[in-house]
Computed example of a mutant assay.
Amino acid sequence: MKIAGKAVVLPYAERCKNILVSNWRGTLHTIKADAKGSKGDIYSSKIKYFFNKGRPYVWVLEGDKHNVNTVIDERGSLAVTSPFPGPLASLLKSINKLPSRIALTGDVIPVRHEKAHSVAENLRETILSEEKTLKQSSYSVSGIFSSSAGCSSRGESLQEVLDGGDRYVAYKFDIRSCSYIDNGGSEHEVDVAEIKASKADQLSPYAVKLIDGINQSRARRRALMLFCLVHMNTKARDAFILSVDRKGFDVLGKVPRLVTTEGLNDHQWREFRFTFTEEANDIETFCRLLVEMEEEALKTVSSYSGLTF
């Protein structure tokens, strides 16, 4: 299975939708308030959310100040990043690189009891569906996911909301504007209507486990290094998968930057895009295509006369 000759990336609206579906943690910002009204200062805290039917449903701990702030002023913003689990988090921190992320502005509206129950049931059904998919998965999928045993999935983490260990207040976040910030820090305004109209990749709910499973496996990271050599003609000393989608995946490779006066190679982390020749519309297809790429890259490298790697 060969990769496409030209790197293909998703439109910004679809990238935003994938981030919202693949993650479940975000930072909520509301305007500080007291009995006299809004003060203009911003209060922020980590929250859990579930993206359902075009909007995030946010769960705020019962004692959190957001619950007071939104009574006075319902305006808020929500920041969500592309998943960066396990060793990827340490790597990004060490090179001062931020993952792609989105910033939403909108209104934080309390969810009535009946609606909150409906959202909770939708979440429960989604978690059960994802668990069923993983139980019925092929060896190629389970092989990758088994390397990510210590990483919680979206469903496992949101199950805590349903279990009732902590008391939460539920809100819906009505989106008014959206900005996509790429890995380089460039900001792109995205039409909210386009986000609502787009569909998230079916593999988005499993992105965290996919990314971590690949990065926790030394053999699979070595395969990423082979991809850089075979398809990008670049010899990487190390590599990590950065993001996944139905079109392909992004890789951070540690590659030569220059040769010093002492003759020693200086290295930098550089991003590479690998595009499939067919779309991976589910995790089975993604893992199959990845395994085919690994096998093909190994055969190609093995055929190079006198090459050591």
Rank of each mutant, 00 (worst) to 15 (best):
R25S: 09
Y12E: 15
K6Q: 06
T27I: 10
N18G: 10
K32P: 05
R15C: 10
D34H: 01
H29G: 11
W24R: 12
V9M: 03
D34K: 07
R25G: 12
I31S: 15
L10P: 07
N23L: 06
E14A: 14
R15A: 02
T27C: 05
A13E: 10
L20K: 14
L10K: 15
I31N: 02
N23I: 13
V9G: 07
G26M: 04
A33Y: 06
S22E: 01
I3G: 00
P11N: 14
A35H: 14
I19T: 13
V21F: 04
A4P: 02
A33S: 14
E14N: 15
V8I: 15
I3M: 11
G5L: 13
A7W: 11
K17P: 01
S22K: 07
I31T: 05
R15Y: 12
W24Q: 14
G5S: 05
V21S: 02
G5K: 11
L28P: 01
P11L: 06
E14K: 13
I3H: 05
A33M: 01
N18L: 00
A7C: 05
R25K: 11
V9Y: 13
G5E: 08
A13P: 03
R15M: 07
A4F: 10
N18E: 03
K32S: 08
K36G: 06
N23W: 11
P11V: 02
N23Q: 15
W24I: 03
R15S: 13
T30N: 04
A4I: 02
D34P: 14
I19E: 00
H29L: 15
R25A: 12
I19G: 01
L10V: 11
L10D: 14
